[in-house]
Design a protein around this nucleic acid. Structure first.
Ligand SMILES: [Mn+2]
Ligand SMILES: [Mn+2]
Ligand SMILES: [Zn+2]
Ligand SMILES: [Zn+2]
Lengths: 147, 147
DNA sequence: TTGATAATGATAACCGTTTTCATTACGCGG
DNA sequence: CCGCGTAATGAAAACGGTTATCATTATCAA
């Protein structure tokens, strides 16, 4: 068992705990969906999760995937990823203020932080008359394996 | 006639020229769609354009809106805008490297430039092993009118 | 003015997502 | 443990935005 699996097992356990303590039941369909998402290195959409999860749990229904995604997003355990060719995929969310780095070939996704946009925000704010409250920053490129 | 209209008339004329010189015909449905998009201060989706354009050109079909959007995007005259609640709206595109600033209340959208992400890109690149080729940066806030 | 054909609008098809509903199974209280 | 109330499920149908089909129309080069 490598580091990735240790990490994803921990994450799986944490997600199940959060579901329970939020009053939701721990069901097999939910566990099947969580098992896939917790270990994925890239964002997945409902159909992809459905296909992967059914390899282990063939009776899973697509509707349960949608319903589980809804709850995981509500609990902020996963987040939606916007991408040039689709904005309906999800990845395990990180805590705090982080941004995404996405491989254009294989989709591998990492988080980064450390952006200092304060001066730019200040400047744009003054020029435009807007009060800036949020920002989206996302990098696209080629991961070590794909280049 | 104010500055906005002068600008949007110029833009309309330019778009029609680009269509013609790309071998496309200048039709009334296309002009109706372009009239709306060229002067909009916020991103619009197909249905919104359809409703607005039909006020002037009631025989317009929704399908022609989709087809016109397809061509305007292909010619890089408009661009898709990603937003927390929808990624299927379009706004007149600017030339060069620019980013979007969007009002969370009324949707008014402006472009800005002058971001210097080079040091951050360099840093993230070294840490992650990625070659970074593109970035998305978008600000959200409240425009002067809405705050 | 004419003719070839690009473009149109009405309609149907498509497809990802949501709703409905009878059935199942989770988990608490006994 | 068991039994019960009900949250959750999967199958099926409905929904809504987008795309494909097709007969008709309108653009524009000759
Ligand atoms: Mn940031
Ligand atoms: Mn930039
Ligand atoms: Zn890659
Ligand atoms: Zn506003």
């Amino acid at each position: 068992m490598d580091d990735l699996n240790v990490t994803s097992d921990k994450r799986t356990h944490n997600w199940l705990d959060t579901l329970r303590s939020s009053g939701y039941r721990l069901t097999e369909p939910r566990q099947a969906v969580i098992d896939i998402l917790a270990k994925s290195q890239r964002a997945l959409n409902a159909t992809e999760i459905f296909d992967l999860a059914r390899e282990e749990y063939p009776s899973l229904g697509l509707v349960s995937v949608y319903r589980t995604l809804e709850k995981l997003e509500e609990l902020e355990l996963i987040q939606k990823v916007h991408h040039p060719d689709g904005c309906q995929s999800f990845i395990a969310g990180f805590t705090g203020h982080q941004h995404l780095l996405i491989c254009q070939v294989c989709g591998q996704t990492e988080f980064f932080e450390g952006d200092d946009l304060a001066p730019l925000i200040e400047h744009v704010s003054r020029e435009s008359g807007f009060t800036i409250e949020e920002h989206w920053l996302q990098f696209f490129g080629l991961c070590a394996k794909c280049k």
